[in-house]
């Protein structure tokens, strides 16, 4: 597996491939990170593992900056899109307290088209986009026809602890994710 060295943004958000989120950048070391990311290859959002998980391999979301703006109070806003998940190792900290690590790509779910049950998730997600313009604006391309895309977006949005969500970074977890979502969105 080829590895690449990238800056690390330690932040407990759950972001699967193609997921987009908006970050507000404030600290000096992360402004530096953004400037590096714009010149080079993006950065890695790495949720902080709790103590039980220290033994596990760390998985982060390798993101690219797709848009930037300023908030009304003058802070730098960036929209980032997850390119792929990565395994993170050999973390180090530079003189500005910015973390860097060697990362290698990690495969996630294969692309799956919507079927009868996932079509309901897709319609429900579409309704959410219509109701929430801020969320909708983040996604120029909404792949509502792809079950894998729809399920991933739902998992990101659900009010569930990130430590539980993280089970779904595994490549073989699509069916479990679908079942999990059915229990919440479609239960009779």
């Amino acid at each position: 597996m080829p590895t690449i060295n990238l800056p690390i943004f330690p932040l407990s958000i759950f972001l699967l491939p193609d997921g987009v989120t908006r970050l507000r950048i404030f600290e000096a070391r992360y402004l530096k990170m953004v400037s590096m990311a714009m010149k080079n290859n993006g950065f890695v959002v790495l949720p902080i593992a709790n103590e039980e998980q220290v033994e596990d391999k760390l998985t982060g979301s390798w993101v690219e900056i797709i848009n930037f703006d300023q908030s009304d109070d003058g802070l730098l806003l960036i929209d980032v899109r997850c390119k792929e998940l990565v395994e993170v190792k050999d973390m180090s900290q530079d003189k500005d307290n910015l973390h860097h690590a060697n990362v290698s790509p990690k495969s996630h779910w294969p692309e799956v088209s919507v079927d009868e049950s996932t079509n309901k998730f897709s319609r429900s997600l579409n309704k959410l986009f219509i109701e929430n313009t801020e969320l909708s604006a983040l996604y120029k391309d909404k792949h509502l026809e792809q079950a894998s895309w729809v399920v991933a977006r739902w998992l990101e949005l659900l009010p569930v602890n990130i430590n539980e969500k993280r089970l779904f970074v595994e490549s073989g977890s699509f069916d479990a994710a679908k079942e999990f979502l059915q229990g919440i969105i479609l239960a009779e």
Binding site: L11, R22, R24, D73, S124
Partner: peptide, 24 residues
């Protein structure tokens, strides 16, 4: 408060249980 969030570095994009209840 909005600047406190800034220090934390991100927006809360995740839905609350209340939002999910309204949505469904």
């Amino acid at each position: 408060e909005n600047q406190q969030q800034v220090v934390k570095g991100f927006y809360f994009m995740e839905m609350s249980q209340e939002q999910l209840a309204v949505h469904l």
